[in-house]
Nucleic acid binder design. Sequence first.
RNA 1: GGCCCGAUGGUCAAGAGGCCUAAGACACCGCCCUUUCACGGCGGUAACACGAGUUCGAAUCUCGUUCGGGUCACCA
Length: 613
Amino acid sequence: MSISRGTKTGVNYYQKKRFFLDLLRKKIPFWPRIALLLKNIVVIYFKICDNGISIEIKFLRVCVMNDYLQLAEILFNEELPTTQQLEALYPPRDLKDGAKVTRVAPSPTGYLHLGTLYVALCCKMTAGEDGVFYVRIEDTDKKREIDGGVKNIIDGLYYFGVTPDEGYTANGEQGKYGPYKQSQRGKIYRAFVKELVKKGLAYPCFCTEQDLAATREGQESRKERTGYYGKYAACRNLSLEQIKEKLDAGQPYVVRLRSGGDESRKITVEDLIKGKIEMPQNDEDFVILKSDGIPTYHFAHAVDDHLMRTTHVIRGDEWVSSLPKHIELFSALGFKAPKYAHIAPIMKLDNGNKRKISKRKDPEAAVSYFVSEGYPAQSVIEYLMTVASSEFEVWRRQNPTLKHADFKFNIKKMSVSGALFDHEKLDDVSKNVISKFDAETVTEAVLKWAKEYDKDFYEKISANTAFLKGIFSIDRGVKNPRKDLAKWRDAKDFTRYFYVAPGFSGLPEHIKPADAVKLLKEYIKIYTVRDSQSEWFEDLKTVCPAANYCPDTREYRQNPQNYNGSVGDFSTVVRICITGRQNSPDLYSIMKLIGTEESLNRIKNVIRILEEA
RNA sequence: GGCCCGAUGGUCAAGAGGCCUAAGACACCGCCCUUUCACGGCGGUAACACGAGUUCGAAUCUCGUUCGGGUCACCA
């Protein structure tokens, strides 16, 4: 991070320039101007005697200070810590060299957003073992705040294992850099605003909404850049008397930064993800303290991230455009700016156009969606990791058993533009995750999910959990497990035929119903539960000749013309009888699990249907 | 509209002037394995937005066009 004009002293380039311009433009009334000049002379004299450098710097401070000092006292007539005290209260962190301090700063306006989770994950991965990842609550907009908003967010973060080291945690506030809720940091913000006012870097503005709308309209009709800057900054040069008058009249006001920026000059920011970003300097006198005394995001960001000693500000890239404001703020406050990393948002396809995933339109925007669908937390995190880093998947294949946190995450390698949310990919990732779970884990998870999100299903499966576990034990725990389940909600359909006999939806075309009937009739005569799958299969083979089906698949493949079908086809018929589908886990296990009687009933039922047809 | 940013298959992406006849993953299709269903293995379809320039040589650097995204509040 760098700024095109360095600031070596307490007073920056903007201030110097502004003072001279104001002087030249005669914005300062006549007598004070003379007074200023007189004082000026003295200072200049001093400075020349001293060391002869930075004459104008000292003079600004001395001359205008009186009014500003008074203003500050009037505006902030309360006991406030000094900024020096605050600096001492929140000293630089004692961490290993190169350790990173990151944070996620959600506002409690609803549920946890997928984007917030994503950013939080990147923050936590960046902080790693040595660093600190903390949660700060940005509740500076009281209008949008909702009840339980903070809890929603923290619970969500914990559910997905993106647990903070500091700030808002499950155990309440933790850490020495708090409070971590902006609504509780009023004095801190006001202390810094006061300091700014003292330096002439901030001033009260009494413009009403209507005033602002009017200037905006004027600007628009003249095709000028809109905003509160330069000559449009109506309250910028109010005299102390004028301000007092309005204050006495009880007019509400905001505090604005007195910007020293020049729109024709550029700032350069080295973003960790996007690289070099060049933008015009900020020249807007934007609001730093709202009329309710609460700071805006911009101001809170500068103060909090400085005081909380954040080293890496990782946030959504919708913030890129306010970077000039933040840079100027850090400079005005005399803070060292943190490193920035702006993450591209997760997008959605909407009518062929990409757009940011939206709370209103997309169920996936709320992480609660993934919870209610029954995606294991780990699946969502794994998926988010694949989006965050293209190297993650390769690493995962090489290290199937390690935790995602062991992956060496490099935020610099993140994609510059937004990725489309890919449901199919999520399902694939999740199937892999679930396929590695053991039966016990799956059973418990499904039970837990169903209890919360599908009562009927829960009633059904909780009656006999051993049976349920039996279902999930089939083909599980082997070297290459099946991948039937992407989410717990899938379990309902997946387990359905274990509980109720399936409907009959027909045979594949190449199997003649008459043949099927012959085979099945023979089969029910001999069916009995066997001790092994191979014995079970032998039974199928034994029945085959009844309809001239070939018991040997290889032989059948070589001479299909000699047969009506193969033992493979017959097993499909049985599968359809038992499960109602052509695709299921190991049939032998299923039949064993549902029991001989039920198996025979299902087969008999299909025989009847086929004969009636 | 101003200001920023971006553009490689349907999707996510590797790619840093010659290793590019452009990797890998998802999806799709085919084959193999297999006692069925799967799992797995192998293979296939499919991309450098367009136009100039720089260069012996461009997916890669520059400019322009087009398209896409973000942002322009007393919201974060």
